[in-house]
């Protein structure tokens, strides 16, 4: 019973963290039509920033600043935004493919830095002493309190995103996404609007990374792998429905349930297959992405025009 409770808490927390990331991607792709292929990079910046600021002193990496976990969150967001800004500045006036190629580059460089600068974050071994808020409450209350924190952040983000969607800002964003020339012709500063969406979205991705580092109490090279961040988040948004904040959240829920549900199943396979089962799951997710794009490109909850706010 206790195990089941803990499993449920883990599941919900993960869905919450992925919900943060999917909302962020929806802001970039769903609102503004920006293709960010480097989610893993911004995620990593947020995660490592939190780890370095909050982890106890260690000879293996930079640290010992002793920041309280919650104070590290804004810094994590700020740094992710600071990295997004110049790259957005350079690419957002160009065709979308350039941002795609440059963002994959920035993610690669960030991965190289954290992998090779062992003084900074202990290289591939990573930092495994990241404190988690409410840990002192013990199990399961500490976990439940952390889940509550994630949900709280998610609710705030969701409300803000809904408000933004219905606001003139969101309307201008969609206008630029759907017809750049027309939007520019009526005086919208295309590059500036895109830059805002890109930087804010990347900041929220950094926040997602920070929450993930806290939750796992660990951040290492595996966390900068694009599979579990970049790809999975894209799949979630496309399946849930891009351009719809609720769709983004639903996508995070559905895809994470599939992802972790197949894990339960593959763990029953013979031993030699277990090691390979994660590839089978990645294959499944890839096929799912292609099928959904071909057949139901609008996702489970398609984009809808916003309701009027009076």
């Amino acid at each position: 019973m206790f195990g089941l409770l803990m499993y449920g808490l883990t599941l919900l927390t993960m869905i919450g963290i992925y919900g943060v990331l999917t909302l962020a991607l929806n802001l970039q792709w769903g609102f503004a039509g920006l293709f960010n292929a480097g989610i893993a990079g911004f995620f990593a910046v947020g995660a490592y920033t939190t780890a370095i600021l909050t982890a106890p002193e260690s000879a293996n990496h930079l640290g010992g600043f002793g920041w309280p976990p919650l104070a590290a969150l804004p810094v994590a967001m700020l740094l992710s935004g600071l990295i997004a800004w110049p790259i957005g500045r350079i690419c957002l006036g160009l065709k979308g493919d350039y941002l795609a190629m440059a963002s994959i580059g920035i993610a690669e460089i960030i991965r190289l830095v954290f992998k090779n600068e062992t003084w900074l974050a202990n290289g591939t071994m990573g930092i495994s002493t990241v404190p988690r808020p409410f840990e002192s409450l013990g199990q399961p209350w500490g976990n439940a309190a952390f889940l509550l924190l994630v949900v709280l952040i998610l609710v705030v983000l969701y409300l803000a995103a809904e408000r933004a969607w219905a606001s003139p800002w969101g309307r201008a964003m969609r206008a630029i996404r759907d017809n750049e020339l027309a939007a520019a012709a009526i005086g919208k500063d295309v590059v500036r609007f895109r830059l805002e969406a890109f930087v804010i979205g990347s900041m929220v991705m950094g926040l997602g990374g920070a929450l993930s580092a806290m939750y796992f109490k660990f951040i290492g090279a595996s966390a900068t792998e694009p599979l579990l961040t970049t790809f999975l988040v894209w799949v979630m948004l496309i399946i849930g429905g891009s351009g719809n904040n609720r769709g983004a959240l639903l996508g995070a829920l559905v895809v994470w349930l599939i992802w972790s549900g197949t894990e339960l199943f593959t763990n029953r396979l013979p031993a030699e297959w277990i090691t390979r089962s994660s590839y089978l799951r990645a294959l499944l997710i890839g096929v799912l992405l292609i099928v959904v794009l071909q057949r139901f490109a609008r996702g489970i909850l398609p984009e809808r025009p916003p309701r009027r706010i009076d």
Partner: peptide
């Protein structure tokens, strides 16, 4: 850009 997302899927597969 939609095809780029599809090529993401191909990459995974």
């Amino acid at each position: 850009i939609i095809v780029v997302i599809a090529s993401f899927g191909v990459m995974l597969v």
